[in-house]
Simulated scan of single mutants.
Amino acid sequence: MKQLKKNFYGNFFRICRSIVRIFYPKYTVQLPNNPGPVVYITHHQNLFGPFILLLWFRECIHAWILHVFLDRKACYDQYVNYTFTERFGWNRSWAKICAFLLSFTVSKLLRSCKGIPVYRGSRQIVNTFKQSTAALVKGESIAIFPDRDYSDSSSEMKDMYDGFLSLEKYYFKTTGQHVCFVPLYVSKNKRTIIGNQGISFRDGQIFKEEKQIVYNKIQAELNRLAVECGDIKQDGRG
């Protein structure tokens, strides 16, 4: 396994993170040692998961980010045509003003934290897998937030996109090793980022069948951690 690389974030992200850390409550990290670079799978929770993970995680990680947020013009269009108008119901003129100001900062910040662009529903998704594989080979870990409903702020991990599991094919083809997927839960109740041992594909199994098994294990572990932290009650509410 490659030794984990550290400190690949850009200066702009580091400065912004340092400022936000002054005002935002600290989250501790409870995570066993998973040797080598890993792929962390985390609950999005309406941006809460990515925000806390990038703010307080103890190592640098490449977050999978929808490609539009890494390009200023595409980010502006996303805010104007969907986020502020369709989702939040803002007046279009007001949305344009806010989008113009915010798109500069967001796109620059996410590029500075070395996010990996995700091209959902496009053949360019191949570039996402190739870039992710290259990062892992260099010893750099990745974070993926696969929730289908990104606006769901509940603690329960529900339906996930399963396409991220195809990263196993690219990584195995390149290295002959299996990807280590680590379910990582961000607990509001305990102010903790918590994970356990990684989950990997097994040797000699049919990919389609093994993919469903790994999917189920990741989802179950994220929800188990949510219950353990008290974010989800035993009756399933949370």
Rank of each mutant, 00 (worst) to 15 (best):
Q3G: 11
Q3C: 00
K5E: 13
K6R: 15
K6Q: 13
N7H: 15
G10A: 02
F12E: 03
F12A: 07
R14T: 12
S18Q: 10
I19D: 03
V20A: 08
I22Y: 03
F23Y: 11
Y24M: 08
V29G: 02
Q30Y: 07
P32S: 03
P32C: 01
P35A: 07
P35C: 10
G36M: 11
G36P: 04
G36T: 09
I41Q: 03
T42K: 05
H43G: 03
Q45D: 04
L47R: 15
G49F: 09
P50T: 12
F51Y: 07
I52K: 13
L55S: 15
W56K: 09
W56P: 08
R58H: 15
R58N: 15
E59V: 14
I61Y: 07
A63M: 13
W64G: 06
H67Q: 14
H67E: 15
H67A: 11
V68P: 09
V68M: 09
V68Y: 08
V68K: 12
Y76A: 01
D77L: 07
Q78I: 00
F84L: 12
F88Q: 11
G89R: 01
N91P: 00
N91D: 14
N91V: 00
N91A: 05
S93N: 15
L102C: 13
S107L: 13
L109N: 10
C113A: 06
G115H: 05
G115A: 15
G115S: 13
I116Q: 07
V118R: 05
Y119D: 12
G121A: 08
R123G: 14
R123F: 11
Q124S: 11
I125N: 06
T128R: 01
K130I: 07
K130P: 00
Q131F: 06
S132F: 02
T133S: 05
T133R: 03
L136F: 04
K138L: 13
G139E: 05
S141C: 12
A143Y: 06
A143H: 05
P146L: 11
P146F: 11
R148A: 12
D149M: 09
Y150P: 03
D152F: 07
D152Y: 10
D152C: 08
S153M: 03
S153Q: 00
S154V: 05
E156F: 02
M160E: 05
D162G: 15
G163I: 12
G163D: 09
G163F: 10
L165D: 07
S166F: 12
L167N: 04
L167M: 11
Y171E: 01
F172I: 04
F172K: 15
K173P: 00
K173F: 08
T175L: 01
T175A: 02
Q177V: 04
V179R: 01
V179H: 04
V179L: 04
Y185T: 05
Y185Q: 00
V186D: 00
S187T: 00
N189Q: 15
K190T: 01
K190R: 14
R191I: 00
R191P: 01
I193F: 00
I194F: 05
G195P: 03
Q197Y: 02
G198K: 02
S200H: 06
R202F: 06
R202Q: 14
D203A: 14
Q205T: 12
Q212E: 15
Y215M: 04
K217E: 12
L222S: 02
R224C: 14
A226Y: 10
E228V: 15
E228I: 10
G230R: 06
G230W: 09
D231K: 01
D231Q: 11
I232Q: 01
I232S: 08
K233N: 13
G236I: 09
G238H: 12
